[in-house]
């Protein structure tokens, strides 16, 4: 079934099925952390998650119908936002903590050992608190994640060729499906029409904060790489280089 013919309920169940499995860092964490050891754990985890993120994107109905160029651009633009939203979702029931993985949980104060990271931790914790206040539902979370992916590149490139225009139109229709899905997810919560509209506004406004934290995080990671605090390699290096 093509996504344009799917009900919002079907669409959501497809993106729920696309959710990546829980991932473990699987390292012996030696505490207290050093700047290098914490950055290494963070980047190792990010690299593992990125591989799963590509498989996740491919399972979003309609994503693989976009041009390969668009698929690459979208992922390169939004990967850190997607990682951060996932982190917020895992941390939503743990105030003051960032649950990077079940075997890698950090308190705000542990950010002290990496120069400049506490500011980012605080922004992540603040956005997580907003999601906690809003009592973010799983269905809403998966829609927001798909929205981040599909929206990430919309205002940075103008289609030139017929093929690019076709892919962009597909992208816009796909965004329609995701917005419909989010609206449907909100409508199931038993709120008044006005409360539903407000909730949609509040949830989507949070996306601009996530973009902001992601930009900060991207700068931070490229600084850490430049200063040789951490060795960035493989897929993570490719994704970072696309942004610097």
């Amino acid at each position: 079934v093509h996504h344009s013919a799917m009900s919002p309920e079907e669409f959501i169940s497809r993106i729920m099925e696309a959710e990546p499995p829980e991932i473990y860092l699987m390292e012996d964490l030696k505490k207290p952390f050093t700047e290098a050891s914490m950055m290494m754990s963070l980047t190792n985890l990010a690299d593992k998650e990125l591989v799963l993120m590509i498989s996740w994107a491919k399972k979003i109905p309609g994503f693989v119908e976009l041009s390969l160029t668009d698929q690459i651009h979208l992922l390169k633009c939004c990967w850190l936002e997607i990682l951060m939203l996932g982190l917020m979702w895992r941390s939503v029931d743990h105030p003051g903590k960032l649950i990077f993985s079940p075997d890698f949980k950090l308190n705000r104060e542990e950010g002290q050992c990496v120069e400049g990271i506490m500011e980012i931790f605080d922004m992540l914790l603040a956005a997580t608190s907003r999601f906690r206040e809003l009592k973010l539902q799983r269905e809403e979370y998966v829609c927001l994640k798909a929205m981040i992916l599909l929206n990430s590149n919309l205002c940075t490139s103008a289609p030139q060729t017929a093929e690019e225009l076709e892919s962009r139109n597909k992208l816009l229709r796909l965004l329609d499906s995701v917005i419909d899905a989010l609206v449907w997810a909100i409508s199931k919560m038993g709120l008044s029409t006005q409360q539903q509209t407000l909730r949609l506004g509040h949830l989507t406004m949070l996306l601009s904060h996530i973009r902001h934290v992601s930009n900060k995080g991207m700068d931070h990671l490229s600084t850490m790489k430049r200063k040789n605090v951490v060795l960035v390699y493989d897929l993570l290096l490719e994704m970072l280089d696309a942004n610097t």
């Binding site: 590509i54 498989s55 491919k58 399972k59 390969l68 690459i72 992922l75 897929l235 490719e238």
Partner: peptide, 13 residues
């Protein structure tokens, strides 16, 4: 080929 391109173009198992 980049790793991203490789992952995007491989068929799922």
């Amino acid at each position: 080929h980049t790793k991203l391109l490789q992952l995007l173009t491989t068929k799922p198992e």
